[in-house]
């Protein structure tokens, strides 16, 4: 019995190795902007998730993933933590009070207190992250059981994932929207199980994070400048 289980597990691992990377996904990224953004060493960028008052908020781990990608490497960008910026601007960038679009910014900056604090923070760009990962469809059946002789799973399950995110970049100095990057990644994950489940996961969120970060880095850090 043990030998049979080992053999099935071996074949399962073999199948996993064979199909392990076969979960497929498609990706599309669009960048709408005029020119690369100049960002000086003394300036920083802040990433903010859209308010939960206006709908589903972007997952925290996605925001962290984008920040980590941009913060690392040779052309790392000076990034101010979102919480620090929100606290510095309290109460004007709270979920309820943050401007929904760029047209709300001039009114805010007309207030000398707010404009002065904004200059003090050194933040040049605010990047608003919006979107989320959804599972629009799925199916199949997979069941697991355990007994005195061992445990195992049998069946087949699948599900679709769609990661739809966009990053809108506001230039606080010019008071205009500097660019917009949208990425959509769709994929289907499969999980056949013969004694042990063999996950073939389409990592749509990770792909979306990578695609968005690459574009943002080219867009912002690509023109990183020294001086003041």
């Amino acid at each position: 019995m043990i030998e049979l289980t080992s053999r099935i597990s071996f074949y399962s691992l073999f199948l996993m190795g064979l199909f392990g990377l076969s979960a497929c996904s498609t990706s599309r990224t669009d960048l709408t902007s005029n020119d690369p953004l100049p960002v000086y060493d003394c300036e920083s960028v802040v990433f903010m998730a859209r308010s939960y008052h206006t709908g589903i908020q972007t997952e925290i781990n996605f925001t962290i993933c984008v920040i980590d990608s941009l913060d690392s490497g040779r052309n790392g960008i000076n990034i101010m933590p979102g919480e620090q910026f929100v606290d510095a601007m309290y109460p004007w960038f709270e979920p309820r009070t943050a401007p929904n679009n760029i047209s709300g910014l001039p009114k805010l900056m007309n207030n000398e207190l707010i404009a002065r604090r904004m200059r003090e923070t050194g933040v040049r760009y605010v990047v608003w992250l919006d979107g989320n990962t959804d599972r629009p469809n799925g199916g199949g059946s997979l069941s697991c059981a355990a007994g005195p002789g061992g445990a195992g799973c049998f069946g087949f399950a699948w599900w679709e994932s769609k990661s739809d995110y966009d990053a809108v970049v506001w230039d606080l100095e010019d008071g205009k929207e500097a660019g917009n990057i949208a990425t959509t990644v769709s994929g289907t994950s499969y999980m056949p199980a013969i004694v042990i489940p063999i996950p073939m996961i389409a990592r749509t969120k990770a792909t979306a994070c990578k695609d968005l970060s690459v574009q943002l880095k080219d867009f912002i850090a690509g023109a990183q400048t020294t001086g003041d």
Partner: peptide
């Protein structure tokens, strides 16, 4: 603790 408010 709440931050100091940026209001007059």
């Amino acid at each position: 603790p709440l931050p100091d408010a940026l209001v007059e």
